[in-house]
Structures are given as C-alpha cells and as structure tokens.
Amino acid sequence: MVIQWSVTRSWGKNYILIAGDTSVEVLERLESEVHAHNPDHLAWHILIAPHHCSRRSIGRVWNGGCIDEEFEESAGALASLGEQRGDGYVVASSRRVIRGGNTPPSYHAKLRYLRILAAGGEVTDAVRARFRCTGGNATSDKPAHVVFNLNATGPSLAATTAPATVGLGGGGASVGGGGGYG
C-alpha cells in the first residue's frame, strides 16, 4: 500500500509518501495508472523508503542479487517515487545502510535515493544529510527517532533524542530493525 498524506501549515502543504512494503510491480503500476496522469498524487517532501530501503522495491533481482549485474532498476518504479518537492527527505525504517551489509537495507537502493534527493545535481554532504535511518546514522548503529517540523515552506529536521529501549525479556531497540531480504 502506498499512502500520500498532505499536512497544511498556514499557506503551504507538506506531502508525506509512505510506501510500506511496496513491491516493484506495484510501483510500476502506480507509474502507469497514477503518476503518468497526475504526478501530484505521488508528490512528497518526505518519502518513507519502501520495504526498509530494499532494492526489490525499485528494481528486479535475480540469481540471488549478490552482485550489481544481478540487479536491474525499474524506470517505472523510480519515476513513481521521483516526485520530490523542495529539499525532500528520504527516511528508511531500518538499521543504518552500509556497503556490504545485510539487506535490507540496500546500499544500492540508498545510492539511488540519494540521486533522487540530488534532483539531477551532485550528491553532496547536504544531500546525504537528507537521507535518514531510524536505526542509525552514517557513523553509529544507535537507533534514533527521525522528527520533522512541518512548516509552510516544507519540512525541516527537528532535534532528536535516542528512543527508550523497549524490553521483553532481553531488551531491544524500539526502531530500525529492518526486514529479511534485500
């Protein structure tokens, strides 16, 4: 399921696109049936990356997908996710994304989302700062809430703190565990 929320603040709107566990096939169908006719229906300032930042939402993987040659991006899926407004943010509900790490999250998918955030420009540190993970950042695996202030001119990051640990018998983080495939 893909849901777009719009939050009106004064005279401006903030769009939040939540892509859940959406597959590449669903995103391709949204491209042809929705995006091609009305791109604003998939507009976002904040995109919750599909399936914990998995490659399988933005393309097809075959033979296990262990090497880049076993992955093919889907132009349709990427087009349906490409309606960024302003200086958008992508949030992955996953542990931090690292090259060679377990998937999801996928390092390849993160690179693709960074290119979307760069809007055809260079992927700079400022662009990288707009890709956030609930289960860690560029240097730490410590989970953290990702909180936004929604303003008339679009969202901005709010100050955050680490979430409380939730424990049932052994404890565990309250955010960012990630899923089971890449």
Rank of each mutant, 00 (worst) to 15 (best):
P163Y: 06
A119T: 05
A126G: 09
V175S: 10
G179V: 00
L42N: 01
R29P: 00
G178K: 00
I48E: 10
P39M: 10
A158F: 04
V91G: 09
V61A: 05
C133R: 04
W5R: 12
S32L: 04
T139H: 12
L157Y: 04
G179R: 03
T103K: 14
P39W: 07
G167M: 07
L157R: 12
I18F: 12
S32K: 15
R9S: 14
P163M: 06
R115Y: 06
G101T: 04
N137H: 08
F131I: 05
H45C: 03
I18W: 09
E69Y: 04
T161K: 11
R99T: 01
W5H: 15
V26T: 12
L111C: 11
Y107F: 15
Q4L: 01
G20S: 14
P39F: 06
T160N: 13
G76C: 02
H37A: 15
N137V: 00
G182T: 00
N63F: 06
G20C: 09
R130T: 08
A129Y: 02
W62S: 12
Q4P: 00
E70W: 09
K142I: 12
G100S: 01
G136W: 01
A19I: 00
V24N: 07
M1N: 12
G121Q: 12
G169Y: 07
A173I: 04
A36P: 01
P143W: 03
I67T: 13
Y181M: 06
R55Y: 02
L111H: 07
E72V: 11
G180F: 09
N149K: 11
G64V: 06
N14V: 11
A162H: 13
A119I: 02
A144S: 14
E83R: 15
N63A: 10
W5M: 14
A77P: 12
Y107Q: 07
A173Q: 13
H145D: 11
V26D: 06
N14T: 14
A138N: 07
D125E: 15
